[in-house]
Each structure stands twice: as C-alpha cells, then as structure tokens.
Design a protein around this nucleic acid. Structure first.
Lengths: 107, 107
DNA sequence: TCGACAGTTCGACATTTATAAAACTGTCAG
DNA sequence: CTGACAGTTTTATAAATGTCGAACTGTCGA
C-alpha cells in the first residue's frame, strides 16, 4: 500500500475530534439520538452529519472541515439526501488498514 | 481502546517520514545492510537506528525527534547496546490497531 | 586520556493545522 | 416567494509541527 495514502489516512485520524467524528460515523451515531422510524435506511452504518455535530463539541464549520479531510483520505463516504448529509465509513479503507497492521494478507 | 491513546498513535504515523521510520524498523531494516553475523540477536525484528538514519533522508536530530514520538505513542520500543540503539515494533500496539480496524475482537 | 562516533537536546524558523465567526449556497415547507 | 435549516466557504489567528544546524552526552578503541 502506498506510503502517502497511508500517512494521509493516519493524519486524518490523528486529531482527537476527527477521530471522534470517525467513530461516531462508524457506529452510525444515530442510534438512540433519533427514533428508529425516523431513520431512513439504517443498516450500513450511515448517519446524519447533523447528529454528529451535536455529539461533538465543536462548531459546524469545524466539523465540515474535518469531514472533508476524512473523505479526502478515503475513510468516509458521503451522500446528500435533500438538506441532509449521510455519512458512512468506506469499508475498503477499514480493510486496508486492518491488513496493514494485522499483516493478514498485506505485506 | 482509549481515544487519546489512539489518536496519539495515529498522529505518530501521520508524518510520511515518521511512517517510513516505523516501516524500516518494522521490517528490521538491517537485513542486507549488514552481514548476518554482525547482527546481534536478529529475529524479533530489531534494527539499529544508525541504518535507519541512512535510509531516510532527514538529519539525525530529526530522526531522533521522530523516534521519540513513536516510542511515546507506544509503537516502538528501544534498547541501548553500547553506542547503538536497537529499535523494534511493540507487538501489542500492532495488535491493538489491527483489532481496532478489523473489528475482530475489539469494539 | 583522547578522539571518533551514535544519538540527544537546544534554539530557531517556516509551514501546517485547528478552530471560530461571518457570510454564503442549496433545499425544503408554507 | 420567503423564511428556516443543513452544510460550506472564506478569512483570520493562535498553536502545533517538521526540520535544521550547533552544541552537548555517553561509549568505545587506541
């Protein structure tokens, strides 16, 4: 795997707030924050940015900025639904990283 | 796993030179750079800092600084042998990270 | 004891980063 | 169309980071 791509991913996760953002998205931060029937298409771990913003205590512009870096690093994918933005972890990225550390099939 | 500890690890790997340093150490950068019988106790992937410094194109002070951060993040362990410093990856850290991404037993 | 060598510590400096406030864009409901 | 809301862009700024050269420390061989 490319060194630059890797370090970009790590940089994206190197800031505590950004890491929290990542984790919120990963666990589909909606659960509990919103009644089940108000959650469109749950299941792949999608979550609305809106709720993440509430969960982290940084302003919306900052979250937007951080999210952009996560997307840019290939860790998160987003999809616009009307006014709202749905975010989910890019499964491929998780796999790459697990392999990098686990040495399972990488290296 | 603790968020702060994690982001510290990621920060340690977020700089391309530091990531290269980590990878050199991980693969026991000595192989080939030194005759086999001049390598004390190879096998656990130890490597002499000296050789790593040659491999990366940054000055010794910078490498020292970077190494300190890797050690501080718990990713690398060092051991002094006379004049030289032997470095190796902390196996536990690799496991933690693999688990974090692989979701195998973590989460 | 001296000189050479491995690595560290100490400033210094330019670059990057995290964050916020203000202003903007796009989408929906009425 | 208008107002409200979700998110983005812009601009500014304080703080952190990466890197270097110079000076320092500790260890070995002669």
């Amino acid at each position: 795997m490319d060194e630059n791509r890797l370090s970009k991913m790590f940089k994206a996760l190197s800031n505590p707030n950004r890491l929290r953002l990542f984790e919120q998205i990963r666990q589909g931060g909606d659960e509990g924050a919103v009644p089940a029937d108000a959650r469109p298409s749950r299941g792949v771990g999608g979550c609305l940015l809106q709720h993440v913003i509430d969960a982290l205590d940084v302003g919306a512009p900052t979250v937007s900025h951080h999210l952009k870096e996560l997307v840019n690093a290939g860790l998160i994918e987003t999809e616009k639904h009307g006014k709202q933005l749905r975010c989910r972890v890019a499964p491929a990225a998780l796999g790459e990283l697990a392999r990098y550390f686990g040495g399972a099939s990488g290296r």
